[in-house]
Design a binder for these strands. Structure first.
Lengths: 116, 116
DNA sequence: TTATCATATCATCAAACGATGATATGATAA
DNA sequence: TTATCATATCATCGTTTGATGATATGATAA
């Protein structure tokens, strides 16, 4: 019965994964894998709108997944911890085996039903 | 410009993480870390409703994160791959450092504002 | 100073998500 | 067979989420 005490821990863990669970945020994280990037550069290479990127960066920064540093009139973002990239890599490895299932999974995942 | 081709890949990756990004699903996955469990056992140890657990299990199974096996009138579920647990472990390790930030992060993450 | 560039903030709105309750299915026991 | 137990399915509904557009802030250049 590790319920009550663990609730908060599970919720925090879920929030951590939620940082990775949105395509836009993932694009941003991926774009930082090769090193620090300006917000403008992220906007360009993700093809997302500026305010959208900025909103997501704010979230990722608050969560501690990325770090910001002012560089003149630019702000550079980088992954805050190598384990962030490790998680991305591990997910890729797992996906190599389960990608098809993930793609077809719809409930609690996406609105479109898989093609029959 | 790795955009168009990568879109699907990023979306699938996001869906994989979404499997881990809900407290109820995480509770279910955690409850399977020590081995296979009956649906009833999962219901009991997560304190979630039966239909809720069943819905989530269906999602997790379709995604390939867990496997089901009929055992008499019961159905046993287990993690389908050791890397599922590896992801959980890696997340825990990362959380040891960023948990506080994750807890306070609200935009794109939870409705409640962190306490001032 | 003012103008301009780079980024952040915020309210709004539509869409996706997850919990619930009712019901269906499927397996075993009687 | 019928009854019962275990699980699955499904529609509904309230909540959460993310994109957008408008605007604010903050930094540098003129």
């Amino acid at each position: 019965m590790l319920l009550a005490a663990q609730t908060t821990r599970v919720e925090i863990k879920a929030r951590l994964f939620r940082g990775f669970s949105d395509p836009s945020r993932l694009k941003i994280l991926e774009s930082l894998r090769d090193g620090a990037q300006t917000v403008g550069a992220i906007v360009e290479c993700t093809a997302l709108s500026q305010s959208n990127v900025s909103n997501h960066l704010s979230c990722l920064r608050d969560c501690g997944l990325v770090m910001a540093e002012q560089r003149g009139k630019f702000v550079e973002y980088r992954l805050s911890d190598p384990r962030v990239e490790e998680l991305l890599i591990l997910a890729e490895i797992l996906l190599a085996d389960v990608a098809h299932g993930v793609y077809e999974c719809t409930r609690y995942s996406t609105e479109e039903r898989a093609v029959e």
